[in-house]
Computed example of a mutant assay.
Amino acid sequence: MMVRLTSAALLSMVLVLTCWSTSASASLPLEEQLQQLKDNYNANDIEMKRLLAEKNRRLGVLELKLESLLLAQQRNNPIRFDVSEIDRSTPVGTSDAILRQTTSKIPRSCADIKTNGHTSSGIYSIIGAKSMESVFCDFCKTTSDPSFQTLIGYEDVKSKPVYFHVQRLFSVFNQSKTPISFDTERINVGGAMNTSSGIFTAPVTGKYFFSYTGTVLFPKAMYRINFNVGLMKNGNDPYRNVIAAAHADSISTTDVQFETFAMVATQHLVKGDRIWVEVYPLLEPGVIMFFSWATQFNGFLLEEDISQSIKSL
């Protein structure tokens, strides 16, 4: 059975002990009586502080247990505990430290942030379904309150930067169903673009933007000549793997003719997906791609599915 000590009860005990000590020492000389009263007062003061500290410690541990129980019930994962399980040797004021140590993890909600030990309402960053989210957590309300967590917006967070700009200068190309390679690397942050193979490999899952511009040279002809180039993904089937395409043609001409083309694409890629540019179908005789300063391939990561990058955490 637990004995609850109130402040009034503690004060009564001090008075009783003081009165008893006074009566018992009435026959002593005055100086000794004064010293004994002083000693008794100091001893009683220390004992009262110890009892109050013990009471505060046990109340703090009980508060920690009750908060854990509330969070577990809200997550449909009830837990049970017994007051007798409270560690009487735990120092005073360690409940917050225990809470942080036992629930430390990357937060995915305001409830997680509260569990991690935060108590001040404010704007925090959490991991959403795909992106980092900025939310306002109102810790003055219960976790079941709809306004406990309010979405502010989405944060553009990337685990690594990815962007490139490559060119192929002053040369020709007359192959089809073959990735176009490049000889000049203007920038390639993240190293995802392989200039010698012409293939870009997505380092993380997310949304990417690509653009390609070029020039084609048509020979003299008395008929129409067509030229097609495509941005390919994981294969060179022109009906299944093309995510963007460009077209150029030449109609009956008595001299060679240059035409330019361009294409852009925004694509969601999974880590490991490959992207490249190639000519399709087979080139007609005499048609070539002419590479110059106007021919360039660009790409960069628009938005990363950050939750996929750290889903194991």
Rank of each mutant, 00 (worst) to 15 (best):
L64E: 06
E32C: 07
Q257E: 06
S131T: 13
M132S: 08
L217F: 10
S144V: 01
R186G: 15
M132H: 03
K55R: 15
A111R: 04
T184P: 00
D255H: 11
G117Q: 02
P91L: 04
F139G: 06
G235F: 01
A221W: 03
I243A: 06
G153K: 01
P281N: 14
F209W: 13
R50W: 13
F258S: 02
G122V: 01
S134I: 05
T94H: 11
Y208G: 07
L28D: 15
I243R: 02
H247V: 00
Q296A: 15
M13E: 12
D96K: 12
V189W: 08
A245H: 08
N44A: 13
V92W: 11
A221H: 08
S131K: 12
M132F: 01
A9P: 00
A97H: 09
L62I: 03
M232C: 02
M289T: 09
S68H: 14
Y154A: 02
F210Q: 07
H118R: 12
F210R: 07
R240D: 07
K38H: 14
N241I: 01
L301Y: 02
G230D: 00
M132I: 11
N44H: 08
F210W: 04
R80P: 02
F136R: 06
N188H: 03
G128R: 10
F258C: 00
V92Q: 15
R57F: 10
E67T: 05
Y154P: 00
R108H: 15
P219H: 05
S307K: 12
E47T: 11
Y212H: 11
E304G: 02
A72H: 11
Y124T: 01
G128L: 05
G191E: 09
D305E: 12
D273S: 04
G299T: 09
T94K: 07
